[in-house]
Amino acid sequence: MKAGRLKQILLLTDGCSNHGEDPIAVAALARNQGVTVNVIGVLDDRQNEKPQGLEEVESIAEAGGGVSQIVYQKSLSQTVQMVTRQAMTQTIQGVVNKELQEILGEGKSIEELPPATRSEVVEVVEDLGEACELEVLVLVDTSASMHHKLPTVKEALYDLSLSLNARTGSNQFSIYTFPDVKNTIRRVIKWTPELGEINGVFSKLSSGGYTPTGPALKEALYAFTEKPLFRGIQDGEDPYEETGF
């Protein structure tokens, strides 16, 4: 099995959507299009109760085949890279499980294999996670309540690139913010292999009280499909694309 290419949307938000279509439905659509949706709910460091509306975070990620986590600002960096990594492993495991079922019959998954075989399978999954190509579109909620969290977000994204770029496989990142009055989302960093200097990316902030998470996710999905893909890779050669992930 050769390493393929994984596509993820990473949504960073702190509240519930209140405008436009249902983000859960859009996430399900994304998953169907081979894009995994991960969601991180960012709490204030002093916030001691979980605010309302954050249940949505889990539902969106679940529908999007991804991973979610609600965290305080101070653990954002570690969470962002962990969620991304976990989602990669989860996706690859899904593909491997599918192949296993083809070989061993319905209902067989990694967990049900005898330990000796399982031991080999998890190595394969890990090797794929190390070598696969990864595209992450980061979608940042820049509505008013997020403003003071944005420096932490920036730091966490730099940290994410540090983690992922230690892998053998190549990475592509891009950053979008929402809401944007004109186009729902706004591209602030186009596809790049590294999120090194991202100073000033969140300078133009939106202030309206609305959070159109669903429409923003949909735009992000379009941005994905319009993206000129890695050159030199023939479609159809790639197991993840083939299996529709």
Binding site: R85, E126, D159, A166, T168
Partner: peptide, 24 residues
């Protein structure tokens, strides 16, 4: 060696302190 560090704890991680990559 040569792969990405798969697990780390910030206090002990050189990447966190700005002292290098997370390559093993």
């Amino acid at each position: 060696i040569g792969r990405a560090i798969k697990e780390y704890t910030e206090f002990y991680d050189r990447g966190y302190w700005g002292f290098g990559s997370r390559k093993a």
